[in-house]
């Protein structure tokens, strides 16, 4: 006698909670050969706005946490992913049609990327900032600070788990909070990653994940006045120049589309930081 399995309801991840789309809409997610897997939430403009509100609310706390603290939280994500390795391998096999070794390689790479980025959280300031020897009696120090709320279009063709690590980790390790539009065709890993995030000491609202149509949601995020930056990593097949034009209205920082999952890099970390330079007089003694 075989046990009847309990399928999972795949929902959005906003402000640390798992709501359905306020629109009530879902879309069908299937395997490469067309077998039904799940009904994922089809996020709406309102869901995107709610996610931005959640991200903004979380920004003050997350950006003022210590680098050591943020590093530990990111490392904790890797720990929990490691514990759920098999689940992710199964999901990637089903949604992306990967062989087991290929799916395993992607999960392992994603975990290693989280670990690599975790280690940067208390170091990037030393590498990206510096003291400035100015001509006068002033203490003068430049340090990178998080840009704010970052909207991210996650990689869309394959790499549905690794792609998330490679765009979320570099953005949040500096203290940014993010609204991520997951891979449209393979959103299940993103929802399962949300469950990992929800249980790994990431404060609610730091990472918000929407499933659905990037073409539908991205313009609202690109135009949202409370979003400071947009990462178009997975927007290569959208009208991404239009998104960049919309983003220019509020002078957002924009990263252009990339092929596949962006490799781990310090540049990705620094891309969504702002250099703050503080001068202070020194008294003449």
């Amino acid at each position: 006698m075989t046990r009847l399995a309990i399928p999972k309801t795949y929902k959005l991840y906003i402000g640390g909670k798992f709501p359905r789309s306020e629109s009530g809409r879902t879309y069908e997610v299937s395997t490469k050969d067309g077998r039904f897997l799940a009904n994922a939430s089809l996020a709406s403009r309102k869901d995107a706005r709610d996610a931005v509100v959640a991200a903004r609310s979380a920004f003050a706390g997350w950006s003022s946490a210590t680098g050591y603290n943020r590093g530990q939280v990111l490392y904790r994500i890797a720990e929990l992913l490691e514990g759920r390795r098999d689940q992710f391998v199964d999901e990637l096999s089903a949604t992306e049609g990967l062989t087991k070794p290929a799916a395993t390689a992607q999960v392992d790479t994603a975990i290693d990327a989280w670990v690599w980025y975790a280690g940067w959280a208390d170091k990037y300031v030393q590498v990206a900032g510096n003291a400035n020897a100015v001509s006068g009696p002033y203490f003068n120090l430049s340090t990178p600070e998080p840009t704010g709320v970052v909207a991210i279009i996650a990689p869309q063709s394959g790499n549905s788990l690794l792609g998330l690590a490679s765009v979320i980790a570099p953005a949040i390790l500096t203290g940014n909070t993010v609204v991520v539009v997951a891979s449209e065709s393979a959103p299940l890993a993103a929802v399962s990653l949300s469950e990992v995030l929800a249980t790994s000491d990431v404060p609610g609202g730091v990472v918000n994940i929407l499933t659905g149509s990037p073409a539908e949601i991205a313009p609202w995020l690109a135009g949202h006045a409370d979003v400071n930056a947009i990462d178009l990593a997975g927007a290569g097949l959208l009208d991404w120049v239009d998104l960049q034009i919309i983003a220019a209205d509020t002078l957002k920082r924009v990263l252009a589309p990339e092929d596949g999952a962006p490799p781990p890099s310090l540049e990705r970390i620094v891309a969504f930081t702002e250099t703050k330079t503080v001068w202070h007089t020194k008294s003449l003694i």
Partner: peptide, 17 residues
């Protein structure tokens, strides 16, 4: 590239252009 990461994930990842 960070060595440990670029070697394990080589089949599924591309370098940034």
């Amino acid at each position: 590239s960070p060595q440990a990461i670029s070697t394990t994930g080589s089949t599924s990842r591309k370098k940034a252009t």
